[in-house]
Amino acid sequence: MSENILTHAKSLYLYISITLVLVCYAIYLSQAGIEGANGGTPQGYLLGTVAAVLILWLTFLGARKRSFKSSVGSVKGWVSAHVYLGTSLILIASFHSDFQIGINVHTLTYGLLLMVIFSGFYGIYTYLRYPQMLSSLSNGRSRDDNMAVLQDITEGIEAICGQLDSELQITVISAIDRTFIGGTNQDILFGRDHSTMFNNVFEVDEISRADVVPNPDQQRIIEFVAKRMPRGSRSEEPKLLLQLLSLLIRRQQLLRNLRKSSQLKARTKIWLLFHIPLSIALLVALLIHIVSVFFYW
């Protein structure tokens, strides 16, 4: 397996981060006296400075990533360091605050920091997990390839429908026409399927009417056709229905595949929409936190 961001440079930044945390812990423990540990002791200030510098450096990744001619380390190395040093901040910031929680701007800063870090954890998960899932889902085919296959299958279904009775025809075609792919960002992210189809096709004054019912995951139309299988009216019908069923099931698989791919791709991007704004909020809170502590002096 290739080296990923966690195993980069034999996890060098993991060891650096562990060392940093141990050093900070030692500083934390060195606090004594009447007041004990606090952000306001010399050690507390030192730990706070370390944490603030780390936060600034971590947010600088956004700029480094886009300095395409920069030769300061590799971007992959920066990302690896970002992950481990960012994680170490949970402890360093906690040492700085001596685990004190309150309802004030200081705790807000601390809370935002944790939120940024945990949204990052989700990002790491998506980066490590989803590329492989996506790759095996696509199995070497591009989205365009898949869409072309989908089109072929659909045309095959339509061709068979032409030889079936009108109820079957209308129902199956309605399921195809009312197949739902994509949709809003939310639909994609949660893999929602709003597909529908006609049901109970009946004729009134020579005009076909029908109820519209949900057909999530194309399951209902498959069951509809399967149900018709043993009740065929003409001698060729079972054969045609079998072909139709097989195409519908292939289509179902393909749609699942496409929906899942879109969902995974959306998830690999969505976390940044939390991670980045939260980071900016953190920077603002951090600034207020630092300025306000000067008033305690």
């Binding site: 290739s2 080296e3 990923n4 961001i5 980069h8 990533k65 395409f68 001619k69 920069s70 030769s71 590799s74 971007v75 992959k76 920066w78 990302v79 980066y127 590329p131």
Partner: peptide, 16 residues
């Protein structure tokens, strides 16, 4: 012309 080599490779955040 870049000392850091191909930018496509050096800019890849995951080393892919």
């Amino acid at each position: 012309s870049l000392a850091t080599g191909p930018a496509c490779v050096s800019a890849c955040p995951t080393g892919a």
